[in-house]
């Protein structure tokens, strides 16, 4: 099995490293988080002592067995969940709740079914006063739809669209305000394999253009390698960081000439991740006994 160092030297394309003077955009410091059960007076620890930095412009993927706390981690950054210990910071200040600098793409799309595609995307701009001027909104919607390839579907309702198209609307809604941070919780988990690959390629293109910082949860190892600059492997019960892996593959990765998926390096990273996660699955089974 190919071995990959936990902290690999920076890749050729992105000259970011731990010594970089720029402070981290997102920073988790010894974060522990859990869910209270008031009836039984217990607290389930979902994540324990997680420390992690996400650099500006980085694409970070999080993988791990289901129930290991991936969603909890992204919800900490989004501001839905508060840590019981430690702190989560964005641009150096403690996360107090959701903010205009962070947008989320949900696994179940979370579109408002009574709104058209256009009005769903507008939803991201209409709540915060003065956030995006009214006069600019129509242009923004058009641009976001173009970015995700849904021009012409402005007046459609979500139930008239396929799963892949709905998630494109979800992505357009998250992109339309041009937030600095994009949080994606298994965004392609519910779309079919073909659509999934097309959407991964699109996402890579979009992010190359917008230069957003992305935290991306997936349970697909290949997806993580294809999209991410770094992959965080979380282990289960309680969720802790098992390993952080640099993905030093050249971009764009969905270029047909590059054929990244058949490169030896891709294979190495892949088999390393597989072995890590196979351990996890075994460990979880034993723990369950």
């Amino acid at each position: 099995m190919g071995h990959v160092e936990a902290h690999h030297a920076p890749g050729a394309l992105r000259a970011v490293s731990d010594e970089s003077p720029e402070p981290a955009l997102i920073e988790a410091l010894h974060v522990t988080a859990g869910y209270e059960n008031r009836r039984e007076l217990t607290r389930l620890i979902a994540l324990r002592d997680v420390s992690l930095q996400v650099r500006r412009g980085e694409f970070l993927a999080i993988v791990g067995p289901s129930g290991c706390g991936k969603t909890t981690f992204i919800n900490l950054i989004a501001g839905f969940v508060k840590p019981t210990e430690g702190s989560v910071r964005v641009r150096g200040s403690e996360v107090a709740g959701p903010g205009a600098d962070r947008a989320m793409v949900f696994q179940d799309y979370a579109l408002l079914p009574w709104r058209t595609v256009e009005r769903n995307i507008r939803f991201a701009m209409e709540n915060r006063r003065g956030h995006v001027p009214k006069s600019a909104q129509a242009g923004r919607v058009a641009r976001a739809l173009e970015l995700v390839g849904l021009t012409g579907f402005e007046k459609s309702y979500p139930h008239e669209l396929s799963g892949g198209m709905r998630q494109r609307v979800g992505i357009a809604r998250a992109l339309v305000t041009e937030p600095e941070i994009l949080l994606m919780d298994e965004p392609f988990g519910a779309v079919d394999a073909m659509t999934r690959e097309a959407m991964q390629a699109e996402l890579e293109k979009i992010i190359a253009e917008t230069r957003q910082t992305v935290v991306f949860i997936t349970h697909s190892i290949d997806e993580a390698i294809l999209l991410a600059d770094r992959i965080v492997v979380i282990s289960k019960r309680p969720g802790t960081i098992r390993e952080v892996i640099d993905v030093d593959l050249p971009r764009p990765r969905f270029d047909e000439q590059a054929d990244v998926q058949r490169s030896p390096r891709f294979g190495e990273i892949r088999s390393h991740l597989w072995s890590l996660l196979a351990d996890e699955a075994l460990g979880a089974k034993q723990a369950a006994r």
Binding site: A100, M104, F106, A110, L112, N127, R173
Partner: peptide, 25 residues
């Protein structure tokens, strides 16, 4: 659906807006 309320929060809706634009419809 809880995720709709979360979407409301992510995209800047305050409590009254969440009631009016998400819960009531």
């Amino acid at each position: 659906e809880p995720s709709l309320i979360r979407a409301g929060e992510v995209f800047g809706a305050n409590r009254p807006q969440i009631y009016l634009k998400v819960i009531l419809p």
